[in-house]
Design a protein around this nucleic acid. Structure first.
Lengths: 238, 238
DNA sequence: TCGCTGGAGTGAACACCGTTAACAGTTAAC
DNA sequence: GTTAACTGTTAACGGTGTTCACTCCAGCGA
């Protein structure tokens, strides 16, 4: 039984207020605009007051990152489950397109999530932050869907001999995480994931507009390729 | 005829000194460490003195970015031309691996070049900065090599009908830039470029170490796939 | 050679930043 | 009812990018 005093509720409300203010500043002026003092100013507080709620400026940013991951994940999930007539392939196209749309609509947030180096949690001096957990929940959306597609109708994948022993060993260790998919299918899943990620990264970070004034058609073509490789019947790009 | 007075030479030397100091700080502490005052401190100057050489802190960073692009490009070129026995396929593997090695060896620099949004030069209020030019020189290394490979022995590529009219139109406009390659081949070239970029981005930014403790084998496998698709005889990954 | 010009460099100052310390008022708990 | 914890304050420290007014001296033309 959780007993929430009034102060606890007020505290939670203030934390939420701080994060929404930080989010607002992030949207308006990008990552550098979300400073501790600026956030405090936004809600009429003095800067040191925020230290009652977050241990440091970095902690605030980390909390913001975790929230953004959650928001993005929820958006993709509701996209995935929104249309009852959508089959597995439709769902994949929906969340892939949804990820791109979110990234283009929220470039500052996307840059914060994916454009900054992530500390390796395997290293001894770092532990799993809420941001890491939220990122894994995000990645799981894709992973689960691909695994469902595979178990519904296995798509062709390279056999284990062709992968090379070192890569094979690492893929085998991830097989369980991918709901028991064989190493070759895990390899393909990771390949498609990195392709989508790289594509969206390049577009959002402006590394692509020397080639395309509108990368939408290119993205659709790439998605189509991936869908074909996964054995899905894709809508022909018009 | 260029007449360089002694003062001009001294000035150029100071500019170079400033940039090497900035580079040193970047390597040691990442992008946030390269502050205007910190750079000035590094060479025993007061902060306002730097304004004689750079209009602002941002200008200094931009100049640093251009220099880093040039350095990276030079490294790839010398890798490409270093081995007289290397054929076109070998060269492609050399520079792709070289790019990854450079990124992993200089994560802070890589993040500065590829992890930050690039202003769109097509927009009216921005012009082509030296950074843009250096970035195009960098991209040209890859582009030229793929074009050479294609013209040496055309690799199979999707026909124009399968690309869709909108994508096709944009690709056709880039055909000249790609030394006259047909739209389908341009499409494949861009596909492989985005794959390499995305892969390296994810690895450097730590977005991959939940999947691989050492992504080297994975990278080699991806490179092998690309080489096969380009019709190159690839070394089998051991 | 004199005098001037303009570039190089300075310290002071402004407004901002993250962070800490010492302090006051309010609220919850024993 | 007293005490302890929580929430907020102001003042201050060292850091940042930037501007301004000022000095100094090399290089130039007359």
């Amino acid at each position: 039984m959780v007993e929430l005093t009034r102060r606890d509720r007020q505290r939670a409300a203030t934390v939420a207020e701080i994060k929404t203010a930080a989010r607002k500043l992030l949207v308006e002026g990008g990552a550098p605009s979300v400073g501790l003092r600026a956030v405090a100013r936004e809600l009429g507080l003095s800067a040191p007051a925020l230290y009652r709620y977050f241990g440091s400026h970095e902690d605030l940013i980390s909390a913001l990152i975790a929230d953004l991951y959650d928001e993005l994940t929820d958006a993709l999930i509701s996209l995935r489950d929104g249309d009852p007539d959508a089959d597995l392939g439709d769902k994949l196209f929906l969340i892939a397109g949804g990820l791109r749309d979110w990234a283009l609509a929220h470039p500052a947030e996307f840059g914060l999530l994916f454009g900054a180096p992530v500390p390796n949690p395997d290293a001894d001096d770092h532990e799993l932050t809420p941001g890491h957990l939220a990122a894994m929940r995000f990645a799981a959306v894709f992973k689960e869907l691909v695994a469902q597609i595979y178990h519904h109708q296995p798509f062709p994948h390279p056999d284990e001999e062709s992968l090379g022993p070192e890569l094979l060993a690492q893929l085998r260790r991830k097989s369980e995480f991918f709901d028991g998919m064989p190493a070759g299918a895990v390899y393909l899943s990771l390949t498609y994931w990195t392709r989508l990620y790289g594509l969206i990264c390049m577009e959002v970070f402006g590394q692509l507009h020397w080639a395309f004034e509108d990368a939408g058609a290119y993205f659709q073509a790439q998605l189509f390729e991936i869908g074909e490789a996964l054995g899905l019947d894709c809508p022909v790009p018009e």
